[in-house]
Write a protein that binds this DNA or RNA. Structure first.
Length: 574
DNA sequence: CCCCCTTTGAAGTTC
DNA sequence: GAACTTCAAAGGGGG
């Protein structure tokens, strides 16, 4: 796939990916079946999943070019994420289906509002880029500007917000998306628009230089050009959907800085602490970024983050630490999925504990079809790309130590897992033990479909094909004990496993499946290997028959999907 | 108030 | 290069 690899070619990926969605039609069938799998969780929950996924976008268009400059605006990234998330939720809530297609990917770009990654809010053009990358789908042609975004035009720039609003967002994009509710899609804000709207998408974009990569239309630079997003964001309605963080706007356009409403959003959405303006740390604007971790974080001694970019002095003092924005890691595919789906799961179940919910989400994740997962992998890949572009010097290592280390080792020793199951909440009934697996047949085409199948593999390049394997997840929330058993360890013992590993294995058997590679090489390969594959998913699917509910949902979903023009995932390959 | 828990994945570190 | 460790999100639970 496209990945970053060399830069250039990302595009490829894009295409591929997109394609896949097309299949969705087919998927329907599959899906339905898939659905069954989910059932386990509860029937209910499952339905949602599909939707969201469908949405996912990935269009791919990412640009390959990576330009390093951006560091400045980190914020946007996170914000964007959140936006997406919210958007999803909203969509889900409300008209999820309503929106029809992706066609242009309406993404809005969120202004830098939040840069997800950065803690502080600066807005960066790049952020936009980032977003776009994330959601490549955006068609905005004009992207190009990215790089220099900084040079914003004064007027336009605003930064950020490119919001492109579109009525429809890309499914995946949800992240970004705004819900239609909040804004009407169609209407572009007058004020915003000075720029040009993309005919296709309707998204405002700047005139793009040819330079810009198609993929990321909104490049940072472009961003600047874009009319002020906020307008969009902040609908008259008052609620700002998107938290724009002030941070987002860099000084250059202070004026834009979020207005109260926006900020409120932000704050609400984002963690509170973030909000506070930082005296020093934050952007000049002082706008806090949601993502930003405030200084509070315990930091480590050195924290410099992006070395490259930052000017910060090498030795960070505490103060500096504070200042330094904590650039968060880009979210991986699963995390993206979690963000999207968490709300649904929570709504469906009574469980509130994140740990329990996450278990459910983990299961669902496994039950997703390959294509679906591929979407997320693709998104995450793009995020990583963006992130790297935005923060060229950043390394995951920069964040090490911020958090206290947890010591999980114990677990292992201590007890063998208590079956007591810590918590279990209601939702979880499902969990039957499934055992089974996987067969691709599982019906849904979930990932599993065919591991071997070339097409599948291709399908999601990004995706990990692996899923198949997963064997075992116990799924049972309640009983977590299994976990170890099932997955003894595969490679990632990590946290939990530490000791557990001992148990290893039992079942696991297949530690890694090797799919033929789905890896496609590229990029992001999915993980297949090291961890056990998610057989669980398979199990799940097998286990439960699809509930009517699901199916219904699926159908609608599918239908919707079919109608949609777009294609997300790559599957094309075939 | 802060860490734990829990999930998967990516990236880092260690051996 | 395999194995292991951290962190990413999230939010109730518990110390």
């Amino acid at each position: 796939m496209p990945q970053l690899n060399g830069g250039g070619g990302d595009e490829l990926g894009a295409n591929d990916e997109m394609i896949s969605f097309k299949d969705e039609g087919e998927q329907e069938e599959k899906i339905s079946e898939n659905v069954s799998a989910e059932r386990d969780l509860d029937d209910v929950k499952s339905s949602l999943v599909n939707e969201s996924e469908n949405n996912s976008s990935s269009s791919d268009s990412e640009q390959t070019e990576r330009r390093p400059q951006p560091r400045a605006d980190l914020e946007s990234y996170e914000k964007a994420r959140e936006y997406f998330t919210e958007a999803l939720r909203r969509q889900q809530d409300g008209g999820f289906f309503k929106s029809p297609h992706y066609p242009g990917y309406p993404f809005l770009m969120i202004p830098d509002l939040t840069n997800p990654y950065l803690s502080n809010g600066a807005l960066s053009p790049s952020a936009r880029t980032y977003l776009q990358m994330k959601w490549p789908l955006l068609d905005v042609p004009g992207t190009a500007a990215l790089r220099d975004s900084r040079s914003p035009t004064p007027g336009l720039l605003s930064n950020k917000v490119p919001v492109v609003q579109h009525a429809h967002m890309h499914p995946l994009t949800p992240l970004i998306t705004y819900s239609s509710e909040h804004f009407s899609p169609g209407t572009p804000p007058a004020h915003l628009s000075p720029e040009i709207l993309d005919p296709k998408t309707g998204i405002p974009r700047t005139p793009h230089p040819s330079e810009l990569s198609p993929y990321y239309p909104l490049s940072p630079g472009a961003v600047g050009q874009i009319p002020h997003p906020l307008g969009w964001l902040v609908p008259q309605q008052g609620q700002p959907m998107y938290p724009i963080t002030a941070g987002g706007f860099r000084h250059p356009y202070p004026a834009l800085a979020m207005n109260a409403s926006m900020s409120s959003l932000v704050s609400s959405r984002f963690s509170p602490h973030i909000v506070p303006h930082h005296p020093h740390g934050l952007h000049q604007t002082g706008i806090p970024h949601p993502a930003i971790v405030s200084p509070a974080i315990k930091q480590e001694p050195n924290g410099e983050f992006s070395p490259a970019a930052n000017t910060k002095s090498p030795v960070p003092t505490k103060k500096e630490e504070d200042k330094k924005p904590h650039i968060k890691k880009p979210l991986n595919a699963f995390m993206l999925y979690m963000k999207e789906m968490r709300a649904k799961v929570v709504a469906e179940c009574t469980l509130k504990e994140s740990a329990a919910i996450n278990q459910i989400l983990g299961r669902r994740w496994h039950s997703l079809s390959r294509e679906e997962q591929a979407k997320y992998y693709e998104l995450s890949r793009k995020e990583r790309q963006l992130h790297s572009q935005l923060y060229p010097g950043w390394s995951a290592r920069d964040n090490y130590g911020r958090r206290k280390k947890r010591k999980r080792d114990n677990k292992a020793d201590s007890a063998p897992e208590d079956f007591s199951a810590r918590n279990k909440k209601p939702c979880v009934q499902y969990l039957p033990q499934e055992k089974m697996i996987d067969s691709p047949a599982s019906s849904h085409g979930s990932m599993l479909d065919s591991p071997a199948t070339p097409s599948t593999a291709l399908a999601s390049p990004a995706a990990p094909a692996p899923t198949h394997s997963e064997q075992a997840q116990p799924l049972s929330l309640t009983t977590k004990p299994d976990r170890h058993h099932h997955f003894p360890l595969l490679s990632k013992p990590s946290s939990s496993s530490s000791s557990s590993s001992s148990s290893s294995s039992s079942s696991s058997s297949q530690p890694s499946i090797s799919l033929p590679s789905s890896s496609s090489g590229s990029q992001s390969t999915p993980p297949l290997l090291s961890r056990p594959l998610p057989l669980a998913s398979l199990h799940a699917s097998l286990l439960s028959p699809p509930s009517p509910f699901h199916q219904a949902a699926l159908h609608s979903h599918h239908a919707w999907f079919q109608s949609q023009p777009l294609s997300l995932v790559t599957k094309s390959a075939d």
